[in-house]
Simulated scan of single mutants.
Amino acid sequence: MTCTAKYIFSEDLLHYHFHKDHPFDQKRVLLTTELLQYAGLLNDSDIVPPRKATDEEIKLFHDHAYVEAVKRASKQSLPEQEAVEFGLGTEDTPIFPDMHHASAFLVGGTLTAVDEVLSGRAKHVSNLGGGLHHGFKRKASGFCIYNDGAIAIRYIREKYNLRVLYVDTDAHHGDGVQWAFYDDPNVCTFSIHETGRYLFPGTGNVNERGIKKGHGYSFNLPVDAFTEDESFLCVFTTALKEIAAFFKPDIIVSQNGADAHCYDPLSHLCCTMTIYETIPQLTHQLAHQYCNGKWIALGGGGYDMWRVAPRAWAQVWNVMHLGLPASGPLPEKWISKWKEKSPVALPTHWEDDPSIVPYIPRKEEISEKNDISLRQLLKYTTLNTPADK
């Protein structure tokens, strides 16, 4: 299935940069874009530049005082004590010059994606520079200053009045977006992530279900450390199909973190490129089934920026644009350009060799734990479990 799709990109998305040793590096977006271009899978006509979000748009979710604090921090004029209150100047989210300007372009990229889809100019749009899902209403957290996903969903609700399904496949719980809509029955959030017993932010339990009118519209599927492809995809596919059937969304916003891979240095999951071929295909299918194709895909985590993030994110675009992931060798031009700058040997193919996954002696036990989490998730909804069907 070939669909009308657009790809948000300009160098404005690359200026969100804490410092050279920080694990969050937007060079991932450039590597992804060039991988697609050199493979002949992305043309100039597919690319839409991001706009800069206005303060009013950012304040659809974030407090005025917080936005003003970020602006002052951008000019090195925010006192340290005040900065800490807003989650700024920490090891995770340090202050850098012009951080408001850079962050506003990430938000604007996601809002550009929303307008491209909801104006009818495209069925699917990716903004792989976005997906900063840990940002809170008045506090930065986990590398995230402004939460572009939460802002975009508020924008969709206020401007277009559509019911939104938010799907988060980052290894870390999508806490900022979940809490933003925890009492809203028109926004359904689903996050599959490594259990918070071992990983930041420590939340995302199955029993986090929403409050007030939003009770029953928050779904979490924590998977055990060292989860591999087969178990991840089994529970993810079942859960997402059931949740989509329950909620019947008007539009899907997905956050496509690439940090569940076994190479990622910040998580403990053991997946391969197989899941990054399958995740967007399922999201694509459900977008057409329930939303007339309306799908916005964001980036997110992914801290092996050389071997994993470019391939994983490129597959999101490949599925959006062509309906299928790419396979076979990577373009030699891309490998040649970046191999001297990469501290690790670059991959040569879209797929992974299965031998990269270490031997996990607890594989059966891990799968059983994940199945229990899935059953608990389904029990907490009005849905039937697979056994009842």
Rank of each mutant, 00 (worst) to 15 (best):
A260S: 15
D250V: 08
E208T: 04
E91M: 11
A225D: 13
A104Y: 05
V357R: 12
T382H: 12
V117S: 08
V357E: 09
G89R: 00
P23K: 13
L298Y: 11
Y217R: 06
I211Y: 13
P79F: 04
M1D: 05
R121L: 08
E11P: 09
E194M: 03
P94Y: 05
G109T: 12
K248F: 01
P310L: 14
L199Y: 02
K59H: 13
L14W: 14
W317T: 01
K137G: 02
L346N: 12
T272W: 15
P49M: 11
A225R: 14
D184R: 01
Y160T: 02
Y380I: 11
I145H: 07
S373P: 07
G149N: 14
D25I: 13
H288S: 01
N147V: 05
G328F: 11
F247M: 12
E82S: 00
T4W: 04
G40C: 15
G204D: 07
H321R: 10
V107P: 03
H215M: 12
L282I: 12
I211M: 15
Q26G: 03
V344Y: 11
L233H: 01
H101L: 11
V253Y: 08
D304Q: 15
L383R: 13
T110Q: 07
D98W: 04
G299V: 08
D115P: 04
L132C: 09
K6T: 10
I153A: 06
G210W: 04
R362H: 12
E57S: 03
G216L: 10
T2Y: 12
P49W: 13
Y155G: 03
I153T: 10
D184V: 04
V308F: 13
Q285R: 10
H100N: 12
D21N: 15
Q178V: 01
H64R: 14
T4R: 09
G40N: 15
A65L: 09
A258L: 11
L36H: 05
F105P: 01
A314T: 02
F200D: 05
A309F: 14
A104F: 08
H321M: 03
F136H: 14
D21K: 15
A387K: 13
K52Y: 02
